[in-house]
């Protein structure tokens, strides 16, 4: 068993990081907001952490802390005006934010512009990543059954009604936006110290879409759904590598195609994600009233 773990160490590490990213998207999705800004937050976290350990020789713990908190600090002033916007407009504004962050790093000489930072000390171990993931799951799991958790659900189902009931919708939405930013930043720091490098092009639009795909495929009605989606989609290309080669398809396009096809299939046929499949399979149980779809 240890041999097995060793051989697939990087795969397990990326499952953990992608799980964190998926959870960061879940934070906004679970109150009905579609945000594509998390790749930008991830970049802020990754750069902040990398600069601290590389240029200032700060301890890794401090880098993690800074990389987690800084994106959240950026998220609050961005979220306050932007979260007032209706679904589609929020998506557009956050796409724009992600690009602005990427362009800022491309044009910033201190971080080597488009080349990015290299030779970052490797400090992330497998256990750090999984500890972080467990912590994030614990926090989100605790929120789930609590009073704020019910408030978030109410906001997702019907925001005006929730506000009428006296729920401070803006405060909840901005808090979750900031929490998502923090998780994305955390994943950014961990990844930067795992792969030794950060470059602006690693945090573009397609990265934001990848995270969204993990979360939606896994399902957002349960807090652990996004992690399942991330694990599934990270493992899948490895499992299918042999088959793709046999068909003469390059791995890059094949992975992209599968991501798209799976996302489409899930959104059409399993709108509550893979995590809802076990419950959906139990057809012999007495039917409960159908839950409304997870996204709005």
């Amino acid at each position: 068993m240890p041999d097995f773990l060793l051989a697939y160490q990087s795969l397990f590490a990326f499952i953990g990081i992608n799980g964190l990213l998926a959870l960061s998207v879940y934070c906004t999705l679970c109150c009905g907001q579609l945000s594509l800004a998390n790749a930008g937050f991830m970049a802020i976290g990754a750069y902040a952490g990398a600069i601290l350990t590389q240029n200032f020789h700060a301890p890794f713990g401090l880098a993690i802390l800074a990389g987690t908190i800084l994106p959240a600090v950026f998220a609050v002033p961005l979220g306050l005006p932007v979260l007032r916007l209706r679904g589609v407009f929020l998506a557009i504004a956050t796409i724009g934010f992600g690009e602005v962050v990427r362009l800022a790093f491309v044009n910033w000489d201190y971080t080597n512009g488009a080349l990015g930072l290299v030779a970052i000390p490797q400090k992330t171990g497998l256990w750090t990543i999984w500890l972080a993931l467990a912590f994030a799951l614990y926090v989100l799991g605790r929120i789930r059954g609590s009073r704020p958790g019910y408030a978030l659900e109410a906001i997702r189902e019907d925001e005006p009604a929730a506000r009428t009931m006296g729920i401070a919708t803006t405060r909840y939405k901005v808090s979750m936006f900031a929490l998502g930013a923090a998780l994305a930043g955390l994943a950014g720091v961990l990844e930067a110290h795992l792969t030794f490098m950060v470059a602006p092009n690693g945090y573009g639009f397609s990265r934001a879409v990848d995270m969204l795909v993990y979360a939606v495929v896994g399902g957002t009605t349960a807090f652990y759904g996004p992690v399942i989606g991330a694990a599934f989609l990270t493992l899948l290309p490895e499992l299918l590598r042999g088959g793709g080669q046999a068909l003469g398809l390059a791995p890059g396009p094949l992975r992209l195609f599968l991501n798209g096809a799976i996302l489409l299939a899930v959104i059409l046929f399993v709108p509550n994600g893979l995590a809802s499949l076990p419950a959906a399979m139990q057809i012999f149980r007495p039917r409960r009233p159908p839950r409304s779809a997870a996204l709005r």
Binding site: G87, V209, V213, V216, F257, G260, A261, L268
Partner: peptide, 14 residues
């Protein structure tokens, strides 16, 4: 509204 946006992203990826 949002699931349409996501499914169009899926189609774009394909």
């Amino acid at each position: 509204n949002i699931s349409g946006l996501i499914s169009s992203l899926a189609a774009a990826t394909i």
